[in-house]
Amino acid sequence: MLSAQPEHHLVVSDEKVNERVIENLGEYITRFQIEFQPPNTPWQQRDLYDDFSIKLSGHRYLDNGAVIGNVLHQFRPRAGGFDANLCIYYPASVPEELLEQHRQQLVVEFTNWTYCESMHSGQHTLPTRPKRPLCEPSC
C-alpha cells in the first residue's frame, strides 16, 4: 500500500478491515480513517453501475469524527484484467487544486498496484486509461 504512492505515509487496516491513513491531501498531510460499508449516500447510490460487480465504499473521517468525504470504487472483471471506476467524494468547498492532486494520486496508486499484481501473476501488463472520468465533488 505504501510503496504504490509516494504521498502515502501510513496505511493500516484494523480487525474490521477499515483503514487508518496518513497521506497528502493537496498541500496538507492528513490523518483520517476510512470506514467501509455498503454505499448509502444519495451520490453513492446515484453512481452505482450494475455492470461493475465488485464495489468498495465507505466514509472518510478525521479523528474528531468530522466526515471529509466518501469512497465508491467499482470494478468489473474482463478478459485479461478488469475495469475500474474510482470515486472519492469531497465536500463542494474543497478547492479544485486538491481534487486534481487526488485524481492524479488515484491514477498513480492504482496503476502501481495493478502493475505490481501483473508482475506477480506473470501477466506483465499495464492498465489502460480510464474510460469514464473520475468523479466530481457531490456532497
Results as ranks from 00 to 15, higher is better:
A79I: 15
V107E: 04
Q44K: 03
Q45R: 11
V12L: 15
Y115I: 03
R31T: 15
W113I: 10
Y49Q: 11
N112E: 06
E117I: 09
S13N: 15
E96F: 07
T128P: 08
K131L: 12
L134F: 08
D47L: 08
L98N: 03
R78C: 09
N112M: 06
R46L: 13
S138M: 13
V71K: 02
E136T: 12
L72S: 01
G65V: 06
K16E: 12
Y28H: 13
R78D: 02
E7Q: 10
R103L: 03
L98T: 07
G81T: 04
P77L: 12
V67W: 01
M1I: 13
V67G: 08
P133G: 00
N70E: 15
M119V: 10
V11M: 09
L48H: 03
F82H: 07
E97T: 12
E23D: 07
V12P: 06
H120N: 10
I68Q: 05
E23M: 10
E136G: 07
L72T: 00
N70H: 15
P77Y: 10
P130C: 00
I34N: 00
Y90L: 15
E117V: 08
K16P: 03
S93A: 13
E96K: 09
F110W: 10
S138C: 15
G80Y: 10
E136N: 12
M1R: 11
P38Y: 03
P133N: 02
G58D: 04
V71C: 05
Q105R: 06
L86T: 00
S93Q: 14
L126Q: 06
A92V: 11
S53Q: 09
T30G: 09
I34A: 00
F110E: 05
P39E: 00
E97F: 09
V71M: 07
E117R: 08
V21Q: 07
D50A: 09
Q37M: 12
N24Q: 15
I34L: 06
G122T: 02
T111G: 02
G122A: 03
L126H: 07
N112D: 04
F75D: 02
R103M: 04
I34S: 03
L10R: 13
V12M: 14
D83K: 01
E23K: 08
F52P: 00
C87A: 12
S3G: 10
R31L: 14
N40D: 14
P39N: 00
E23C: 05
N70D: 14
R46T: 11
R132M: 07
E117L: 11
H124G: 05
C116W: 12
F110H: 08
S13C: 13
D83C: 01
N85A: 05
L25R: 06
P133F: 01
D83A: 00
T30W: 11
A66C: 14
